[in-house]
Design a protein around this nucleic acid. Structure first.
Ligand code: FES
Ligand code: FES
Lengths: 149, 149
DNA sequence: TGAAATCGGACTCTAGCTATCGTATATCAG
DNA sequence: CTGATATACGATAGCTAGAGTCCGATTTCA
């Protein structure tokens, strides 16, 4: 149903790591090697993940020895929806209802399926839900525990 | 991020079909062949899907010619969370946080990962969100369009 | 000059989703 | 009784995306 892929989680772990480090000294840089070694992650994938975060504008990079990454955007300004878009690409509940318009693209049953429109609206509902979650809620401890159980 | 698999959508299409049919005459039965032919779905998978719905107690089966399936449970009593559990198995945002307890099972980074607890709470939040959606909202037209944008 | 870092591509391996085939069993109509 | 139409069930193949690995190029600091 709903599941993060590995790179998404690696990215969250890295962002949390950098966020905590830069709380004290904002000039501190973090290398992919450091993140991988700290948490036991595969180095190459960690490097690719950080590169992706950099290409997305979330972090900054510095080449060469003593180089590494630093946070560029405040994690309060990024929603989980945006982050998932960046890491895993825009997804949809069903293949043919990413947007209400470009629907029939890769769905063979688009013309006969009667639940497409409903799926589109449900999709928007999910997107709103994910947009309401700040990345800082995840990378910091103290994630809102009790709501209405 | 979040995506239904095919059998889940086939199941929803079938439930909607049966629901509409039985609105007028509750004694009407629906065969897998009928569903598959109506919507152009592969027959074998449709049959397997309906069988799964029957094993889950959502629908009833009648063997032999003139046999088929009939709705057993009211679709208002089933949440999207339950349905996804039935169709795709209990899933989690991350591999190691299905429940707050049995966490470290199949996650290699469980001991070092610092976002596991947060992921667990986020997972519960998603579950509450999906539990708040009735299956009838999907199988009927008129899915709640505007909430808080 | 070498070590450490970002950058980039190509490749394998695997698990899970999707689909198909074949077969057994049950029921109704004639 | 027989054939048509159902459900029920298992085995299997193809495919795709995810995850991980390997190799190389470039940049920068000491
Ligand atoms: S939304 Fe694609 S077949 Fe229904
Ligand atoms: S929750 Fe599994 S590694 Fe973080």
């Amino acid at each position: 149903m709903i599941k993060f892929n590995r790179t998404t989680e690696y990215g969250l772990m890295a962002l949390r790591h950098m966020s905590r480090k830069q709380l004290m000294d904002p000039s501190e840089v973090t290398s992919a090697r450091e993140v991988a070694d700290t948490y036991g992650l595969p180095f190459e994938i960690t490097a690719k993940t950080l590169l992706r975060l950099k290409d997305s504008g979330l972090i900054q990079s510095a080449h060469g020895a003593k180089g590494g990454y630093t946070l560029q955007k405040s994690l309060e300004q990024i929603s989980l929806a945006e982050f998932l878009d960046l890491m895993e690409g825009r997804q949809s509940l069903v293949a043919c209802a990413i947007d209400s318009d470009e629907s029939l693209l890769d769905c063979a049953y688009g013309n006969r399926c009667e639940i497409k429109h409903v799926m589109g609206r449900l999709n928007e509902k999910v997107a709103r839900f994910l947009s309401g979650i700040q990345l800082s809620e995840i990378t910091q401890e103290s994630f809102n525990k009790g709501s209405s159980p």
